[in-house]
Simulated scan of single mutants.
Amino acid sequence: MTDDNGVSATAHPEPSEQVRILLSVPARELAAMFPADTRSALDELGEVVVAEPGELADTTAFRATLSGVHVAVTAWGFPTLDATRLADAPELRFVMHAASSLRSVTSDDFWAAGIPISQAGAAMAPAVAELSLAFTMSLLRRTQRTDHALRSGGDWWEAREVPRAREIRGSRIGVIGASRTGRQYIDLVTALGADVTVYDPYLPAGDPLHAIQGGLHDLLRECEVLALHAPATPETRGMLGAAELSLLRDGALVVNTARAELLDADALYAEVASGRLDAALDVFEVEPLDDRWRALPNVLVTPHLGGATVESRRRAGLIVVDEIRRFLAGRPLQYALTRIDVERMG
């Protein structure tokens, strides 16, 4: 028997059992996600065992650490839960992913096992949406061009000769992907007076965003700013190649805080290097960043940190604790995901 989230009614530890919780978050993020008060709340839920995700790549270490673990808090670098790993974690009843994408953690064997899984991706949506807004306004104001001109030793007056800055009010912004982040970005730019069109073939019936929905090619032709907020799935990978990018008007601005795989990197680089398009990018086809993007005067780059704010990390820890508390109490999970959800979300 299952509840509304598909969680097995027999999945929870027996009342007499001491709940054992594995906390496997990279050391560089552990204190940010679990400051003293949040860690104390987690400790109240059971016996917490801490292990660096990378250490668990070793099968012997994985088996020893997961022995008796009922709940696994996973994050970046945690091993894929395939048949072998699941056999080494026979008591595992719930996986709480403290990051966003579940693709690296789940497998066919995991889904077949019926173990419920949730994730804290919602914690990062406001942070990524804010960076996307910051990128949008920076590109509109030509900040990347003027900053580069002055930092590279250019003449003051030449630096002032960049294309005239634009304001966000009245700007036509095309958004690909009505994800959690995409929706928050739309709220932010709409509040500042932007004219928004969204493309997402999975908008549910009755969604208020239908009022501003448009076709992909029309959106590309009409927008002044293109903001990407779609997941990387088989359907979306490479969805914007040379032909699609050529539809953008001269001087259009491209903002990508989502996934590098959405774009043909070489095609985008050619357009930006030619000066026809400007871009602001937080994600890249090669990470760490290769050198070709660094010298371009019309590109703004950040090292894939869109979701990493003080507030977002703290929110993630609180979501982790709340979801585990819900699971142990037999209450519906707020952020549970199914295999179909993950296939659509990337």
Rank of each mutant, 00 (worst) to 15 (best):
I319R: 00
G214T: 08
G114W: 10
V48T: 01
P26R: 11
S24C: 03
L131Q: 04
L289A: 07
Y199E: 00
N256R: 12
L296D: 04
D187A: 01
D282A: 09
T74R: 15
R259V: 04
L188K: 12
A9N: 08
Q213G: 03
I115A: 05
V198L: 07
E17M: 11
L228I: 13
W156S: 15
A9I: 04
A98G: 01
A316M: 05
D43M: 04
L247D: 02
P234A: 12
Q18W: 08
G177I: 04
M137K: 15
T190P: 06
I176N: 07
G77F: 11
I168H: 00
A265K: 07
R314K: 13
V128I: 14
E222Q: 13
E17P: 05
L219H: 02
A280D: 09
G77A: 07
A134D: 02
V175P: 08
P13R: 06
R237Y: 13
G214R: 11
E271Q: 13
G153W: 09
T236W: 10
V73L: 01
V272G: 02
A75T: 03
A75N: 12
E271S: 11
G251K: 02
P13F: 01
M33Q: 07
S138E: 02
L305I: 11
T10Y: 03
Y335N: 04
A258V: 08
L56A: 03
Q144C: 08
D290R: 13
L245W: 00
R20G: 01
G182A: 14
S246T: 06
H304S: 00
V128A: 07
G306C: 15
D341V: 11
G154Y: 10
D88G: 09
A89K: 03
I21L: 14
A258F: 03
A87M: 11
M96W: 02
H229K: 05
P201F: 07
V7E: 04
E224L: 11
L277D: 01
V189M: 15
L133C: 11
T236C: 10
A316W: 03
S104K: 09
G68C: 00
A270W: 03
V73D: 06
R63V: 07
L240D: 07
A87C: 12
D195W: 01
Y202P: 10
T136R: 09
G215K: 14
G346D: 01
E167Y: 07
F94S: 02
S138M: 02
I186G: 05
A51P: 00
T233D: 04
G121Y: 01
V299P: 00
A230N: 06
S8M: 13
D218R: 09
A149R: 14
V189S: 11
E161D: 05
M345Y: 11
T59I: 06
E222V: 12
A159P: 00
A112R: 15
P53I: 14
I186L: 15
